[in-house]
Amino acid sequence: MHWTSALAIYVLFWFLAVFLVLPFGVRTTHELGEQHIRGTAESAPHVFLIGRFFVRTTIVATVMFAAFYLNYVNGWITADMLDWTGVSRGI
């Protein structure tokens, strides 16, 4: 695999990880017992720590990419194994 392909796939995994990590660790103003600020959504986080969010996202994306790359190198799961219709085998 060329390094640019690996980088592009990692970026895709990173953006997928954004949506996986986003709901975890979020506490609303109501959950913390604070006064609701008028004009904000009730589901909005009380404090959003962007640095912690980026670190968590990067860790999750790196683990997912490592699993993908190990599968790519070792061939544990191939496209033929996922072809349940039999099209590639000519069935």
Rank of each mutant, 00 (worst) to 15 (best):
R52E: 14
E34K: 10
L70T: 04
R56C: 10
L22R: 11
L82W: 01
D80K: 12
W84T: 07
A66C: 06
I9V: 15
T4V: 12
Y72G: 00
L82E: 04
V26L: 11
Y69M: 05
A79C: 00
S88T: 13
D83Q: 05
A8P: 03
L49H: 13
L12E: 05
L32V: 04
A44D: 12
E34W: 15
F68G: 02
A17M: 04
L49F: 10
V60C: 08
A17F: 05
V63H: 03
A61Y: 00
D83K: 05
W14N: 05
A41H: 08
F24E: 13
A6M: 14
F53N: 03
R38D: 15
H2S: 15
L7Y: 07
H30Q: 12
Y10E: 06
A79K: 06
A79L: 11
T62Y: 03
S5Y: 10
V18H: 14
R52Y: 12
T4Q: 11
V26E: 11
Y72S: 03
N74D: 07
F53W: 06
E34T: 11
A61W: 01
H36Y: 11
L49A: 12
A66I: 06
R52P: 05
V87S: 09
V11L: 07
G33S: 13
E42K: 11
V55F: 06
R56W: 08
F54K: 06
G25P: 01
V21N: 11
L49S: 14
W3E: 08
V73P: 03
F65W: 09
T40G: 04
F68W: 13
V18A: 12
Y10P: 00
N74S: 09
A6W: 06
A79H: 04
W84N: 07
Y10H: 03
I91C: 09
N71M: 02
A17H: 05
